[in-house]
């Protein structure tokens, strides 16, 4: 059944081809068969193009007219619609106005064996491939030159000396100041809230400078042996930079009524690493693999908060040597 239909179609096509062969004198054979006339679609495409032109003009008008409300929206609408109208006109053209040929062609040959052989013979005949010592020297020159050219990359940064990764501005006696440079007094620091502090005179953006400062009831503090004496009158200070991926710890979970509610915790909003301020910055939840660095505090005779030394561990996200050295001033 289907075969018969195919044969019929093929026959008709052949006939049609024959017909086309009869040309007017001076007329050349067509490459692309003629498309059927389609006045409706032609009109539609024309209208769409005119609409596009209208929208494009509207864009210019909107641009020139200042002080329009929703300026950006009108600009986007006019330009976007102009493009979409052109797109629609082109799709109508493709589908309705021009003829869609379905042609056949050969895929390119898989390989050209003769050409390959010729290339190989060329290389062989040149004689380069046989001189082993020469090839070695060529390799050495190439490799050394490549290395030489890449060497200046080392100027980009201190790739070998990582001392700055351990450096913080904190040392014994350094005052804790707020964002405006005012020193913190121990009496300023209240329970159930958090403060951001910096090393006096330091660059606030440096990872080692910023602290989060909280005060806990003294009987709640359970500092490990290594951190005993780090708190001053119940005030504890931790690096504000999360040891997981370096975001700022700006969340303090401060329960209003302890028995019913989660315990106090410092939280990083990027991946919700959660640290216990009462126990020296231990990780209680989340992906952080290292406790929060803790800064020892003292209270000066005039009541100001001061550092009693540097952090107990290096600041910032962990790297190969983060646990090998204590931070330096």
């Amino acid at each position: 059944m289907g075969r018969a239909r195919d044969a019929l179609v093929a026959g008709l096509l052949l006939l049609a081809r024959k017909r086309k062969r009869r040309l007017w004198p001076g007329q050349r054979e067509r490459i692309v068969p003629p498309a059927s006339r389609n006045p409706g679609s032609e009109l539609l495409a024309t209208l769409l193009l005119l609409a596009a032109a209208g929208c494009a003009v509207a864009f210019i008008v909107v641009y020139v007219l200042d002080r329009l409300p929703a300026h950006t929206q009108l600009l986007g609408l006019s330009l976007g619609l102009a493009c979409l109208f052109v797109a629609a006109a082109l799709i109508v053209t493709a589908k309705r106005l021009i003829v869609t040929e379905e042609l056949e062609d050969d895929y390119p040959a898989e390989e050209h064996v003769d050409e390959q052989e010729t290339v190989l013979q060329l290389v062989a005949d040149s004689g380069f491939s046989r001189r082993r010592f020469f090839k070695l020297a060529l390799g050495a020159a190439g490799g050394a030159l490549a290395l030489a050219v890449l060497t200046p990359i080392a100027s980009l940064g201190p790739a070998i000396d990582l001392a700055r990764f351990y450096a913080t501005p904190w040392r014994r006696g350094r005052r804790l100041v707020d964002e405006h440079g005012r020193p913190y007094r121990a009496s300023d620091v209240e329970e159930d809230t958090l403060y951001t502090a910096f090393a006096e005179g330091s660059d606030k953006e440096q990872l080692g400078s910023s602290l989060v400062l909280v005060r806990l009831p003294k009987d709640r503090l359970k500092l490990p042996a290594g951190n005993s004496g780090y708190a001053a009158d119940g005030i504890v200070a931790y690096s504000k930079i999360c040891t997981h991926a370096g975001c700022a710890i700006s969340l303090y979970r401060a329960p209003l009524f302890q028995p019913d509610e989660p315990t106090p915790a410092l939280v990083c909003p990027c991946h919700y690493s959660t640290f216990d301020p009462a126990s020296g910055g231990r990780v209680t939840f989340g992906p952080a693999g290292r406790k929060l660095p803790m800064l020892p505090l003292t209270i000066a005779p005039n009541g100001e908060l001061r550092a009693a030394g540097n952090f107990d561990s290096a600041v910032g996200p962990s790297w190969w040597g983060v646990r090998t050295k204590r931070p330096t001033s």
Partner: peptide, 10 residues
């Protein structure tokens, strides 16, 4: 282009 400009404006 049309879809992107529409998104960009709206």
């Amino acid at each position: 282009a049309g879809v992107l400009f529409l998104l960009g404006g709206l």
